[in-house]
Each structure stands twice: as C-alpha cells, then as structure tokens.
Amino acid sequence: MLQKPITTGLLILLALTVSIPAFSADQGQIIGGSTNSPVRIEVFSDFQCPACRDLYLGAIRQVLQDYSSNGKVCVIYHEFPLAAHQYGKEAARYSEAASRLGIQSLLTVFDSLFADQAQWSQDGNLDAVIAKALPRDEYRKLKKVIQDPSINQSIDKEIQLGTKKEIKSTPTMFFYYAGKEQKVEGAVTYATMKQFLDSVIK
C-alpha cells in the first residue's frame, strides 16, 4: 500500500531537482561582481518604476557592497522600460551610455537616476540630474556617446530578451546558483535577500 506514495514522492522529488540551465549573460550591464561568481542576479528594471527604485536603493546597493565586492554575487541589470512610463526609455539611454564609459560612471548614473526619480519623473529633465551627478568630463563624454544609434539598438535587444523571458512587471529578478534558476517578481528587502544569499553561498 505504501509503495505507491513513496514512488510518487520520489518521482516528484526527481522532477524538482532537475536543474534549469541558466541563460547566457551576453547582454545587460554588470554593475557588480564577475560572471564567475557563485550567484548571479539578473534584474529587469525600469528607472521610472518606484518598486525598481526601492529594490536598487534598499537592497541591490547593499548586495554590491557586501557580496559583489568580494566576488560572491554578480549583479546584472537589463533595461526593461515599460510603455506606461514616459521617460523610462530615455533614462535607459543614459544608463546604457554610462555603461560604455565604465563601471564608476554607470554606478553614479544608477544612483542618481534612482535617487532623483521623483524629480525627473515629473518633468523629464534627466539631463539636469545626470549633469549634477557626473564629473564635467564624464558628462561631456556621455553626451557624445548617447548620440550613438547603437544605444537604442542595445535597449531594444534588452526589451526583446525580457519579452522572451516573459517579464510581465518590473522589477523581475532571476537568481542563478548551482545550476539553478529562481524567478522573483517585485522588490525584495535586503534582509530577505541576505538570508537567501547566505543559504546558497557556502
């Protein structure tokens, strides 16, 4: 009598333990750690989305400091500006351009876009926010790079990738560890993320 439930249980456990292959991280902006890190977090985000702001300022920045700086976690951001957000794509263009100047400029742009989200979301004056955050030289370079038509192409590719990954809302995160994948929709607090990361990084 007991054979049936045991076999069913074993079959279910086997199905659950089959690892899911991670998708290649050839796109997106690496904002911390390296692709060799034991855990990789890929975030599909929109700079004008308040939950994305909460996630970045409330959790991701701390993850960069506590886990990425010592190579434990790689954080990759994918641009996924939502159609409902008027200035989301323009903000993504600034971020994409900053990524071509280097990690320092990229992080500065990330910080300022999210920290001043309430301000530029009102009037769309992204330029003022970026000009205030970056050193003059870097800002000038960024203004040049942002003219490059490949910036839009990169963002469109990211949106295509997000659509392929069935992203319905932002932020959506994918955690890759030990050959496994976990999808999380919505913002997560740092405390929750820390507990999770500590459980999968040994």
Partner: peptide, 27 residues
C-alpha cells in the same frame, strides 16, 4: 510544487531551497 524552492547539492550537502518569491508573498 509551484512554491517549492527545490533541492540543491552544495559541497556534497543536500539542502532544501526556499522560494524567494514565496517568502516575499508571506511577508
């Protein structure tokens, strides 16, 4: 099944994973 985080083998230790999405739902 939809809430189960799965099983991972890390350094020969078998551990039960927690679904972060379900943690978020309970919170």
């Amino acid at each position: 099944y939809v809430k189960f985080g799965g099983v991972t083998i890390i350094n020969r230790n078998i551990q039960l994973d927690t679904s972060l999405q379900f943690v978020q739902a309970i919170e």
